[in-house]
Simulated assay, not measured.
Amino acid sequence: MPDNSEDGLEERRRRLGASLGRIRADDVKEAKAEASAEESRKGFANAMKLSSEFISAIIVGVGLGWTMDWYFGSTPWGLIFFLLLGFCAGVLNVLRATGAVPTRLSAPPEGKKDENNRGGV
C-alpha cells in the first residue's frame, strides 16, 4: 500500500512539473512579446516627435515669411526665404534629435587656457 501512494505522488509531482514548465515557457513568450511591443511604441513615439519638430519648423517659417511679405509688401520673396529657412531649421532639429549633429560645442576643460590666457582652446 505505501508503494502505491508513493507512485501516485511521483506521478502528480511529474504532472505538476510539466504544467509549471509550460506556464513558465508561456510567461517567457509573453515577456518577449511585451518587450517587442514596448520597442515598437518607443519607435512610433520617436517618429511622431521627429515629424512634428520638422513640420512645426516649416510652419513657423511660412508664417514668418507670409507676415514679412504682408508687412513689407515684398510678395513672394519673404515667404520663399523663410520657407527655406524653416526647412533648414527642421532638418537641423531632426539631425540634433537623432544625435547626428551635436547640440552645442562643449566647454573647454577648467584648467586649459589658450595663448592669451583666456578660457578657450
Rank of each mutant, 00 (worst) to 15 (best):
60 V>Q: 01
34 E>F: 05
43 G>P: 11
26 D>N: 15
91 V>Q: 09
24 R>K: 11
50 L>P: 07
56 S>D: 03
17 G>W: 05
42 K>F: 13
16 L>G: 05
51 S>W: 03
15 R>G: 02
70 W>E: 14
23 I>C: 13
42 K>C: 15
96 R>Q: 14
59 I>T: 04
111 G>R: 01
108 P>C: 09
10 E>C: 14
28 V>S: 14
13 R>C: 09
33 A>S: 10
60 V>T: 09
92 L>Q: 06
104 R>M: 06
23 I>L: 15
34 E>M: 09
18 A>E: 06
35 A>P: 01
51 S>V: 11
2 P>G: 02
120 G>M: 10
101 V>R: 00
102 P>K: 07
44 F>G: 05
34 E>R: 12
100 A>H: 03
27 D>R: 02
41 R>D: 15
53 E>G: 03
58 I>D: 00
70 W>V: 03
9 L>H: 14
79 L>A: 04
45 A>P: 09
97 A>R: 05
83 L>T: 14
21 G>D: 13
98 T>Y: 00
30 E>W: 09
108 P>H: 13
89 A>C: 03
71 Y>N: 07
15 R>S: 03
39 E>M: 01
85 L>A: 03
8 G>V: 05
40 S>D: 09
9 L>T: 14
15 R>E: 03
33 A>C: 02
102 P>H: 01
19 S>W: 04
22 R>M: 10
117 N>L: 15
15 R>I: 06
81 F>G: 06
64 L>I: 02
57 A>S: 04
49 K>P: 07
6 E>G: 13
91 V>S: 06
15 R>D: 01
67 T>Q: 06
96 R>E: 08
46 N>V: 09
113 K>V: 15
47 A>L: 14
42 K>A: 14
43 G>Y: 09
104 R>S: 13
41 R>Y: 13
88 C>D: 06
92 L>H: 08
42 K>Q: 12
111 G>E: 00
23 I>M: 15
